[in-house]
């Protein structure tokens, strides 16, 4: 968990959104994916806080943010809400960093709210019509079913998290507690599943052309051992986006912030300062 002293909250569209803000320098907005929340950035935090102003969000329905499901949790709407957040905080422009579906949200922001964005970094991101592969039951059962089971069973969730790590021995009780924290309440489980329900390929497919025309610097980081997202996503993004660079980390899985935080921070620093 991130230090509570940096914790803030703001009401956007009548929903309370929690974010952490600290450090000084160029602002970086960090957007988590599904199954995680702000805590996933905690290991990068020490490497970046003295160089940048970090804005780390709990997306609506995640972490400590509002769990009501009367608002759409689509990538598009999350992107809009984050743009609202930046405006409300009077932050004119940020470096965007997104992981997993957070990467999809950042792609939409880079395309739709380009004026707010210096650069885009996506790590193990979704894109186009590529979605997480099914780890347990193939073909028919969508990832949602597995996530659904995971919300009800700590063992199933642990299984998902463990498979997402390269250094699997690092999955201790503290890390698992962080992942499990929102699943402890009925509202948390409901919001999580609602988030999964709201995911729609269409949101990313409709920006694919504009994505190719991005002029801002783009960095694509791929954990080579990510079992949930195909390597093709990273490769295709890199191929389509002219301004992009691709970093492949052989010793990282899906949750690459847990596997190689120092390396990622170093990539980010080098990329932003370039």
């Amino acid at each position: 968990m991130l230090n509570k002293k940096y914790r803030h909250s703001i009401v956007i569209d009548n929903h309370e959104m929690v974010y952490y803000r600290c450090g000084q320098g160029d602002p970086i907005l960090m957007v988590h994916g599904i199954t995680t929340y702000s805590f996933i950035w905690r290991n990068l935090f020490p490497y970046l806080e003295d160089k940048y102003e970090l804005i780390i969000v709990d997306l609506l329905g995640c972490g400590d943010s509002d769990k009501s499901i009367d608002i759409e949790f689509s990538l598009k709407n999350h992107a809009r809400i984050l743009a609202e957040l930046l405006r409300a905080l009077h932050i004119p422009k940020v470096h965007l960093v997104g992981h997993d579906v957070g990467g999809g949200i950042c792609q939409i922001m880079a395309v739709r709210y380009a004026e707010l964005v210096f650069s885009l970094t996506v790590m193990n991101t979704v894109a186009y019509d590529f979605w997480p592969v099914q780890p347990i039951i193939t073909m028919r059962t969508p990832i949602i079913r597995q996530l659904a089971m995971a919300t009800l069973d700590l063992g199933a969730f642990r299984f998902i998290v463990k498979r997402g790590l390269y250094y699997q021995a690092r999955l201790d009780k503290e890390l698992m507690d962080c992942f499990w924290y929102p699943m402890k309440t009925s509202a948390g489980r409901k919001a999580f599943l609602y988030f999964a329900h709201c995911l729609n390929n269409q949101d990313l497919l409709e920006i694919s052309d504009e994505l190719a025309c991005l002029e801002m610097p783009v960095m694509i980081i791929r954990g080579d051992k990510d079992v949930y997202l195909s390597q093709q996503i990273a490769e295709r993004l890199h191929k389509n986006i002219k301004t992009s660079m691709l970093k492949i980390i052989p010793t990282a899985g899906h949750f690459l912030q847990e596997d190689e935080p120092a390396l990622i921070a170093n990539y980010l620093h080098t990329f932003i300062k370039r």
């Binding site: 039951i137 028919r140 089971m149 009800l152 069973d153």
Partner: peptide, 20 residues
């Protein structure tokens, strides 16, 4: 194969449900 898989999935789900 898909159908077979589906029926297996259903059984797995039911067992999981009962177990949970």
């Amino acid at each position: 194969l898909e159908e077979e898989n589906n029926s297996l999935s259903n059984r797995v789900e039911e067992m999981l449900l009962l177990s949970l």
